Simulated assay, not measured.
Amino acid sequence: MTTLWDTTGSAVVKALSAERRAAGALAFGLALTLVVVVDEKNVAAAESAATAAAAAHPCRLLIVVRRQIDAPHPRLDAEVSIGGRLGPGEAIVMRMYGRLALHAESVVLPLLASDAPVVTWWQDEPPTRIAFDPLGVFADRRVTDCDRAPDPLAALRLRAADFEPGDTDLSWTRISGWRTLLAAAFDGRSDRPRSAHIDADPSDPSAQLFAGWLRAKLGVPVDVAGTGKRGIQAVRVAVDDGEVAVSRADARSGTITRPGVPDRRLPLRQLDVGDLLAEELRRLDHDVIYAEALSAWSGIPDLAGRSGHREHIWQDPMAQAPAAAAVPAAASATATSGPVAEGGS
């Protein structure tokens, strides 16, 4: 491991090359570059999650810690390692001070793995608009987590208003197991669903995305009602002869219930953030199903048909700007419209 204090971007590039030579390999089978954007107070959690994801997907891990933007002088401290505490691959932790933190791309761009996709993950509260952050603009995939925002549903509405193909959110990834089991529950059935109910806190963005997915796929009204417990507890779909349901049995399994068929218990594990991130890195293309679910929940039509192109919009966080200017005009008018949003919140 090489630690550089008050350094430059070119010195970091040279340190990475030296570490690769010292490791005895001049080329690694890198599947992608993972850029992690995090505040100092959450660095340990972000490193742990990113290390778990990097173990499943060989990548160059670039952790950008924006510190003290108001510092009078720009400064870069970096830690470069291969096969160290951040896993078997290549990892660089960069702490940026002062105005340099607003131009992190000037350091990150030369460090991207050549000819490999780029995924940017905001471990903290996601940006109001991804175009404000150049680390998101140059990425092929952009991963946020609305569950970390002070108001998760407001953050999810912003994600819908700001959506471009390539965006995703870990709130969506959290329901992958639920969607798999519910699809399995309908295997071999031909009856028509009538309505659906999700047993979860209405303020849970995962539950609302689940409701949007059900509405998009089944075309039925969906209700989300609270249970007082964190996370989704059950989903029930009314059919002609009763209901098809998936309910959580414990932290690792769920139960499928269908009319006239014995109950089945199948794996339904509660994933930690590292596992969620690894799951999301399995696909590097546009997630059309997520776009459809987000569109159905928010009431903003045809999110999947957007261009997917972003241009960087400069915003100085030190300047006071009207909040309304940060969100496309369609957001306030349409983000809460639609039966799912009304029934769930």
Rank of each mutant, 00 (worst) to 15 (best):
E311F: 03
A11P: 07
D223L: 11
P165M: 07
W297Y: 12
S295R: 04
A31H: 08
A245W: 05
Q315E: 12
A15T: 09
G228Q: 09
A52V: 15
W213F: 10
V65S: 00
T3M: 05
S203Q: 10
R236I: 07
A296G: 08
R189C: 04
Q208E: 05
A304V: 08
V36Y: 01
T7M: 10
R75Y: 00
R141P: 01
V65T: 04
W5F: 09
R20M: 15
V118F: 00
T336Y: 00
T33W: 04
D77C: 02
A324L: 10
H312V: 11
M1G: 13
R258E: 13
R265Q: 15
A23E: 07
L158R: 14
A238C: 00
P58M: 11
P110H: 01
A330F: 00
R21A: 13
D250I: 07
T128G: 13
G166R: 08
D140I: 00
V137R: 06
W5H: 13
A78P: 09
A44M: 04
P72Q: 10
I289D: 13
D187I: 00
T3R: 14
E243C: 02
R20F: 05
Q315Y: 02
F186Q: 11
Q270C: 08
H286C: 02
P267N: 12
A319Q: 14
A296V: 08
A52T: 15
V246N: 12
F132L: 12
P301W: 03
A160W: 04
P126K: 07
D191Y: 00
W5E: 12
G212Y: 00
L112N: 09
V35S: 02
G260H: 09
T336N: 04
T7E: 10
I92W: 04
A291H: 09
G84C: 05
L181H: 04
